[in-house]
Design a protein around this nucleic acid. Structure first.
Length: 426
RNA sequence: GUGGGCGUAGCUCAGCUGGUUAGAGCACCUGGUUGUGGCCCAGGAGGCCGUGGGUUCAAGUCCCAUCGCUCACCCCA
């Protein structure tokens, strides 16, 4: 049975890295006063159609949608802002406080062709601040995103832009289309289609020719937003610069989800290949209301964990060492099996990490296994020890070996090594 | 959905212009120690050479198809 295309197993060698990363995310989000939220794996399909946008690629061709036995249209979540906002509305979080700060770590699903930094099931962490319209909230969100990413990756850049309010966007799109239509013959077939259907998308075309035409003829969206929008943008930008973040204004940064207003941003790494963004986000002042909630503004981001790990390149700075094994319990002979089980249980109650032999291998093979697991000590329970009511202790580093009383094994072991695990109940 | 690259041992990969029993390193197992790890030495196990068809006296090697992986496009984290 092969695995499904575009999904990955995270094997025991890698899970410590994931845990380490997750711990950092929890700690950093907590440092900013954000609280964790967990939403269901699937939602009503309608939620994503209405929030992400019915004309977007995510909704049109990337969702894992299905019908349940009651005939309800459901979808595995392809992004997290909409579910979080849905939960915010449904649980009346807006009644509890005027501002809600939430963060999450979760798996998402999009049916795309896999490539570097792109999977069908992938993981994101992110945060949403719901309630504040002010630029300091944008700054807080971007700072949080940057702080977490830069804890693991170097050479990051924050790309920043504003796309204004949807009310002014219609006139800009008209202007954009008019400025480029005289040159439509010079576009490739794909970009010519975009000129009609979604001209904003032309800005992130990879066609050099298109980019050249844009540079020469296209108006820039940030020059066609309201003065309030422009001021908001200027405050965000200067605020981030004052903090020393590597910010660049990218007038061509537009984002593919329909709900963004004003601020859009990405964090990019040169180590990622074609998908250079490891984090993306922005402000969405209309979404909460559009989904049936109160009229409150919000801003947020999402970062791809797999992309972050690629950008981090191998070892993460400050990574915790793998689990330490205290004792490998070697046993030999039928009469030693039950005493070994009991000794292992007793040692674990005292807080030691204990691995016991369950393959009835030779002593030599058991020692090889003990060495492989990195055990600090070996305890031998064989026929001789059973007869004498003792156990043989060997320290793997020094090779020191002695025979000790079975009853006092825990105490004597404690003279040589402290337990790695905290004992339950302190 | 479209295009490029690649499929040989658990992993990383050799295998020249088709030529006889398909190799290496690492990992694994056993022995060198009647009950003692790492290092070393000796040995061992492990391969429908992705799959199916074709060309040929002969195919891991050439041709076609198919599946898978991968990178890129579209789009996104």
């Amino acid at each position: 049975m092969p695995r499904v295309k575009g999904v990955r197993d995270i094997l025991p060698d890698e899970t410590p890295v994931w845990r380490f990363l997750e711990q950092k995310i929890h700690a950093q989000a907590a440092a900013f006063g954000y609280r964790e939220i967990r939403t269901p794996t699937f939602e009503a399909t309608e939620l994503f159609v209405r929030s992400v946008g019915s004309e977007t690629d995510i909704v049109n061709k990337e969702m894992y949608s299905f019908t349940d036995q009651a005939g309800k249209g459901l979808t595995l979540k392809p992004e997290l802002t909409a579910p979080v906002i849905r939960a915010y509305i449904q649980n009346n979080l807006h009644r509890e406080a005027p501002l809600t700060r939430l963060y999450y770590i979760d798996a998402l699903y999009r049916q795309e062709r896999p490539q570097k930094g792109r999977l069908r099931q992938f993981h994101q962490f992110g945060a949403e601040a719901i309630g504040s319209p002010y630029p300091e909230q944008d700054i807080e969100i971007i700072t949080l995103a940057y702080d977490i990413c830069s804890a693991f990756c170097s050479d990051l850049t924050v790309r920043l832009n504003t796309i204004g309010d949807p009310s002014s966007r219609g006139t800009f799109l008209e202007l954009l289309r008019k400025s480029l239509e005289p040159h439509s013959a010079a576009f490739g077939p794909l970009d010519r289609r975009r000129l009609q259907s979604n001209p904003l998308r032309l800005f992130d075309s990879k066609d050099e020719h298109t980019q050249d035409l844009l540079d020469r003829f296209a108006p820039r969206i940030h020059e066609h937003v309201s003065s309030e929008d422009a001021e908001h943008f200027a405050t965000v930008k200067s605020g981030l610069e004052a903090l020393g973040l590597p910010v660049v204004h990218d007038p061509k940064l537009v984002r593919g989800l329909d709900y963004y207003t004003r601020t859009t941003f990405e964090i990019i790494s040169p180590h990622l290949g074609a998908q250079d963004a490891l984090c993306g986000g922005g402000r969405y002042d209309r979404l909460v209301e559009d989904l049936g909630g109160p009229s409150v503004p919000a801003v947020g981001f999402a970062a791809g964990i797999e992309r972050l790990l690629i950008a981090a390149g191998g070892e993460l700075p400050g990574q915790a060492p793998p689990n330490q094994v205290d004792v490998y319990l070697v046993s030999k002979g039928d009469r030693s099996t039950q005493p070994a089980i009991e000794l292992a249980a007793k040692l674990r109650k005292s807080g030691y990490v204990v691995i016991m032999e369950t393959l009835r291998r030779s002593i030599k093979a058991q020692f090889r296994e003990a060495n492989r697991t990195g055990a600090r000590a070996v305890l031998i329970l064989g026929d001789d020890e059973i007869a004498a009511g003792s156990v043989t202790l060997k320290l793997m580093d020094s090779g020191h070996q002695e025979t000790i009383s079975l009853d006092r094994a825990t105490d004597i072991l404690g003279d040589y090594l402290r337990p790695e695990r905290p004992v339950d109940g302190g």
